[in-house]
Design a protein around this nucleic acid. Structure first.
Lengths: 197, 197
DNA sequence: CGCCCCATGTAAGACGTTACATGATTGA
DNA sequence: TCAATCATGTAACGTCTTACATGGGGCG
């Protein structure tokens, strides 16, 4: 069995289709207009990506004739697609994900709640926390080690990297805290509901 | 005349060669071991990139026989290469650079001081400041607008984006301030030197 | 009628990834 | 002598970019 290889754009599409079935054009608009602008909205990227996903049996497009407009293909996620999405989100975080693929990690997190539930989101955050706390000192070390040999702009650029990771670490803690809060509220509601009934 | 198209990796190489002539292998080690790990250290990326740059006349490699090891090609930047690097760094910042190509902007800044001097670095920072201050409110607007419709993890992911831009804005101000400080010191030294002589 | 938006697609080309190939030198 | 490191390269493959093509529908 071939390990289904799916591009980042592919996962972004899968995640969006999980939220609701959409046409290629609707996806393009999402990529073009929302904060997901990091992903390509060009037809030359999206339509081939959709075809690949369909050939892998992860999504399925059906022609919708109802509206008077040109035929539109609405894509839906298949059970296989959902499984692939879950697997991707649950994949253990490694150092390399944090260094070279942070945007992909954030994408996984963004879709995590719907796909694997709150415990899954929390797991992802916790391993992100671990990776960040192990990587940051190393990066700071590079800064102090090389700062003599670098022009000011080089040092500042490196500092910007350190800062952005520090910022992300803060966010991770904040996100975890808000999940804890959420869970407490949920428990509370459950308790109240139990006493009432 | 063809507009020399240079990839991000190409510019990264140009910038490093500006600092000092290096072999392909040395460049690979830099990409593999320093904070520049975002750029590929695979030979399949670097050697073709070097060849392209050489064909465009931006760098020139000369075989160094001296050491007993296998022949090594040391690449040096040509005047054309320096011109291309400067042009790239001076290129006006647009919204899109900030949204889709922040890492490239940081790369430009990192090399700016050596290539175009402190005034060039400051110019880059100032336009980054402008773009960020115009983009951030828009991004925050998206957050408030869509937050009802998103799962918590989606909202948090978007918040992480907002925060990282806020963090970058802070850094930009900090970097600008340290250039101002630097300039003051420089003026100071000049004044003292003048009184002494 | 011309123009813009909806909506889908294809083709050429550039670039990076992965994997393989080569070969010399150093050290266990 | 076997493995690791230095050092350069090539080939197949996948994906994105850019640009073009097509065609219906609404609007001034």
């Amino acid at each position: 069995m071939k390990a289904a290889v799916i591009s980042k754009l592919g996962y972004a599409i899968l995640g969006l289709l999980q939220q609701q079935p959409s046409s290629g054009y609707a996806l393009r608009k999402i990529f073009a207009s929302t904060a997901m602008t990091t992903y390509s909205d060009s037809p030359g990227a999206i339509y081939p990506a959709l075809r690949r996903l369909e050939q892998q049996g992860l999504i399925h497009g059906s022609i919708e004739e109802s509206s008077g407009l040109r035929r539109r293909r609405i894509f839906r996620m298949t059970p296989h697609g959902l499984a692939a999405l879950k697997k991707w989100i649950k994949r253990p975080l490694v150092r390399d994900d944090v260094i070279r693929g942070l945007d992909e990690v954030m994408l996984r997190f963004a879709f995590s709640q719907q796909a694997v539930g709150m415990p899954g989101s929390v797991r992802l955050l916790k391993s992100l926390l671990i990776e960040l706390t192990s990587y940051l000192p190393e990066l700071r070390g590079q800064l102090t080690a090389h700062q003599e040999a670098m022009p000011i702009s080089g040092r500042l650029a490196l500092e910007s990297g350190v800062r952005s990771y520090e910022c992300l670490l803060e966010w991770t803690k904040y996100a975890l805290a808000s999940y804890v809060r959420q869970e407490k509220m949920w428990q509370e509601r459950k308790r109240k509901g139990a006493t009432k009934s």
